[in-house]
């Protein structure tokens, strides 16, 4: 297994996440796409930490742990906003939430 194997897997996960964010019409599905993107990013950090820096240097892994923490905080706030939107509009389709639309 070389560095490029991990980078290709990560690129595929990133692309799938972008695809989900672009095509899905449900806020929770968009959240799943964002989680895929964040996972691919963390996988890249861990792969570069393993292959590019010397073995005793694990800074990339710590950055990935911080990334997981940020993803958890983001998911919590995202779902809180979704609940508030659902209470207000009765739907979580992003197209129907258009009060601010000019």
């Amino acid at each position: 297994m070389s560095l490029q194997h991990y980078l290709v897997i990560s690129a595929m996960l990133f692309t799938l996440g972008i695809f989900a964010v672009l095509t899905r019409r449900n806020a929770i599905s968009i959240l799943m796409g964002i989680e895929l993107i964040l996972n691919s990013c963390n996988l890249n950090f861990a792969a570069f930490s393993r292959f590019v820096t010397p073995p005793e240097n694990i800074d990339g892994q710590i950055i990935a742990i911080f990334g997981i923490v940020l993803a958890a905080a983001e998911a919590a706030v995202f779902l809180a906003i979704i609940l508030a939107i659902y209470r207000e509009f009765g739907s979580i389709r992003p197209n129907e939430v258009d009060t601010l639309k000019g």
């Binding site: 959240l31 861990a46 792969a47 393993r50 958890a72 998911a75 779902l79 609940l83």
Partner: peptide, 25 residues
């Protein structure tokens, strides 16, 4: 990638936390 702590954190936080949150949502 020899990141054992990261793997455990991934399972605990994502599968145990975020995924349950998504299902609740």
């Amino acid at each position: 990638l020899q990141a054992d702590f990261l793997a455990a954190t991934q399972v605990i936080v994502y599968v145990g936390g975020i995924l349950v949150l998504i299902l609740f949502g």
